[in-house]
Structures are given as structure tokens and as C-alpha cells.
Computed example of a mutant assay.
Amino acid sequence: MNFHTRKWVKPEDLNANGTLFGGSLLKWIDEEAAIYAMCQLDNKRVVTKYMSEINFLSSAVQGDIIEMGIVATHFGNTSITLFCEVRNKVTRHSILTINKIVFVNIDENFSPVPHGKTKITSSSDKFKD
């Protein structure tokens, strides 16, 4: 799994305890996962269908740099299932894991449509001469 996206934990991202607010983190994850799904399915129209148990393992504080890793684990007919891990960039300690985030490929009428994908593709695979 590659960790591409990084976020700097700022004061506006904190909860009343002075640690990273889970809602902020989940917003970042949903956005990053949606972008990943769009890139894998070659469609800008995807919707979040399901997110499994969210396992908070540790917290982050103001000034920490966190990074998100996402990888596809299953391709359905109209869906893609992802795994996500968030960790502290400096210490490499896991902050959170989500075993299943499911996105559905949709058309302009918001109906599920087959995507025809069966494996992970990288950017280099898409831009071959």
C-alpha cells in the first residue's frame, strides 16, 4: 500500500480534548477514497455505499503530519472495495484502519453501472505510449 496523501493537523481539526477530531479525519478519508475509486474505475461518478467498522488505534495532535494509505481489495460488478490505513508520518504509528470502504460506480442518472475492472491499475499503466 502506498501512502500518498498527507495532512497537517491544524487547530481547526482538533476536538475538545486537543486531539484530531474523528469527523475531520473521516471527511479526509472519504474524499481520498473517492478519488482513489474514481481513478481505479475511470469514472468521476462514484458514491460511498458502505464503510465498515472504524478502528481508532491512536490519536494525532496539533502539528502532526498524518498520511493516508488506500488500496483496492475487491472489484465487484459495479463496486470497488478499499482498505484504508492512516498513520503518523514521523513515527509510522497507525492512527486508524478501515477494513472495507465500498464505492459504487454510477451513471449520469445515479444508477449503478458495471465498470469492467478486475485489478488495480497504476498511473503508469494508464499513460503508456
Rank of each mutant, 00 (worst) to 15 (best):
residue 72 A to K: 01
residue 65 I to W: 02
residue 61 V to W: 01
residue 117 K to D: 00
residue 64 D to V: 08
residue 48 T to S: 07
residue 45 R to I: 09
residue 63 G to E: 14
residue 46 V to C: 09
residue 107 D to N: 06
residue 79 S to H: 02
residue 55 N to K: 07
residue 94 S to E: 03
residue 102 V to M: 11
residue 70 I to G: 05
residue 13 D to V: 09
residue 47 V to I: 14
residue 45 R to M: 07
residue 52 S to Q: 05
residue 90 V to K: 10
residue 31 E to I: 05
residue 86 V to A: 02
residue 87 R to Q: 08
residue 112 P to A: 01
residue 57 L to P: 08
residue 8 W to T: 13
residue 24 S to Y: 10
residue 110 F to R: 05
residue 88 N to C: 02
residue 53 E to N: 12
residue 103 F to N: 04
residue 88 N to M: 07
residue 124 S to F: 11
residue 77 N to M: 03
residue 75 F to G: 02
residue 17 N to H: 11
residue 64 D to I: 04
residue 80 I to L: 06
residue 105 N to F: 15
residue 89 K to W: 05
residue 82 L to R: 03
residue 92 R to D: 15
residue 128 K to C: 05
residue 84 C to T: 15
residue 52 S to P: 03
residue 127 F to P: 00
residue 20 L to W: 15
residue 122 S to N: 09
residue 68 M to D: 08
residue 28 W to M: 14
residue 125 D to M: 12
residue 33 A to I: 10
residue 97 T to L: 11
residue 27 K to F: 08
residue 116 G to P: 07
residue 49 K to V: 11
residue 124 S to L: 11
residue 99 N to K: 14
residue 48 T to Y: 04
residue 57 L to G: 03
residue 59 S to E: 09
residue 23 G to E: 14
residue 34 A to V: 04
residue 11 P to M: 01
residue 7 K to R: 12
residue 71 V to M: 07
residue 118 T to F: 06
residue 50 Y to K: 09
residue 10 K to F: 10
residue 117 K to L: 02
residue 1 M to P: 08
residue 30 D to F: 14
residue 13 D to C: 06
residue 69 G to P: 13
residue 67 E to W: 10
residue 52 S to N: 02
residue 32 E to Q: 09
residue 83 F to V: 12
residue 117 K to I: 02
residue 100 K to C: 09
residue 79 S to V: 00
residue 91 T to V: 06
residue 39 C to E: 15
residue 64 D to M: 02
residue 12 E to T: 02
residue 84 C to R: 02
residue 85 E to M: 11
residue 10 K to L: 11
residue 69 G to F: 06
residue 18 G to N: 12
residue 116 G to L: 01
residue 39 C to L: 15
residue 96 L to Y: 14
residue 5 T to H: 08
residue 95 I to T: 11
residue 92 R to H: 08
